[in-house]
Design a protein around this nucleic acid. Sequence first.
DNA 1: TTCATTTTTCAGCAATTACTGAAAATTCAG
DNA 2: CTGAATTTTCAGTAATTGCTGAAAAATGAA
Lengths: 186, 186
Amino acid sequence: MTPLVRSFVAHFGEMGSRWGINRTVGQIYALIYVSQRPLNADEIAEALEFSRSNVSMGLKELQAWRLVRLKHLPGDRREYFDAPSDAWEVFQILAEERRRREIEPTLSMLRSALMEKPASEEDAVAQERMRGMHELIEMLTTWFDEVQHMDRNTLAQLMRMGSRVQKLLEFTSKVKIVGGGKGKSN
Amino acid sequence: MTPLVRSFVAHFGEMGSRWGINRTVGQIYALIYVSQRPLNADEIAEALEFSRSNVSMGLKELQAWRLVRLKHLPGDRREYFDAPSDAWEVFQILAEERRRREIEPTLSMLRSALMEKPASEEDAVAQERMRGMHELIEMLTTWFDEVQHMDRNTLAQLMRMGSRVQKLLEFTSKVKIVGGGKGKSN
DNA sequence: TTCATTTTTCAGCAATTACTGAAAATTCAG
DNA sequence: CTGAATTTTCAGTAATTGCTGAAAAATGAA
């Protein structure tokens, strides 16, 4: 590993442990992410000085996160791994996985809590708070779903606009009123 | 604790540990979040059956995250804590803190890695990947900054529109072209 | 200032999580 | 099939993180 790669890998190790992901898994991912070609487990173990079995477990976890992909090179029985190099793709994968693992279970817990008939004033207040949380999460995830289906140019354009989109919305609503157009009226 | 609150608290405990935050801290936060009135450390310790000192440490951490606020009740020397109950506010706080703790350090690592002159082909590739990551993070954070400054109605409107904004953008760019504006040409 | 109340700190122990080496299982070329 | 190459599993141990009780520090009413 060059010093450049080394520092990237080290950083991901540290960050990984702030995450649910552990240090070694973070480092393995970082190494694969910046590598030009797919790596096999022995190469990873040697570069990072982890045991072969630790690498095996790390790769299993990264595959479960869909952050690395198994490849086979012709004429080589060993398994090689690479990572999607497009950052936006990685972001989407992370968002989907985190949603499945964290958001969905939370939503389902909240939904069932909100079905209960509050047994006391205390419960009623608690439900009120939970309702607020539930609403926000639903709103954010619904929105994020839709955004994911937008094409990347539109998305980039939207982001570049930033808060100026506000002006656009104000303008549009005036147009609709004046023109009486067949805009969807939510 | 009622069964309703108990299950909410338990869920936050489990989720907390997927996070960097630990189980007890998650539970303390959950309890405070759903409580109608501010709680003091002894009440929390009793409800959750943690030691007083554990609660003290947990509260310290939650304060560092700005997720709970210290309150003083008149005529009572003890410290009471409550949590912002508005979910959007909580979301913003979390976003800011995570940004400060995770995003900024990563950006600064990436920036300095990108300043280095690549010492090899391998480094050049690694830098290319890092550049992609850096660009995406900058874009997302810049965008998020701006969104945070939008007023909540506009934001809600924007979210409700979802991917239909795309249509709006297409429409606008046509208007600009017709009117002789320098529409984006990508 | 005093001192009872309350909070914080921290050494030591407990619990959990991470890692390893050895062995078992799998894979596939021949 | 066979058996060498490769991957996975897992029991044992190491390392880390979490928690507690006791003691110290801080606070504020009198």
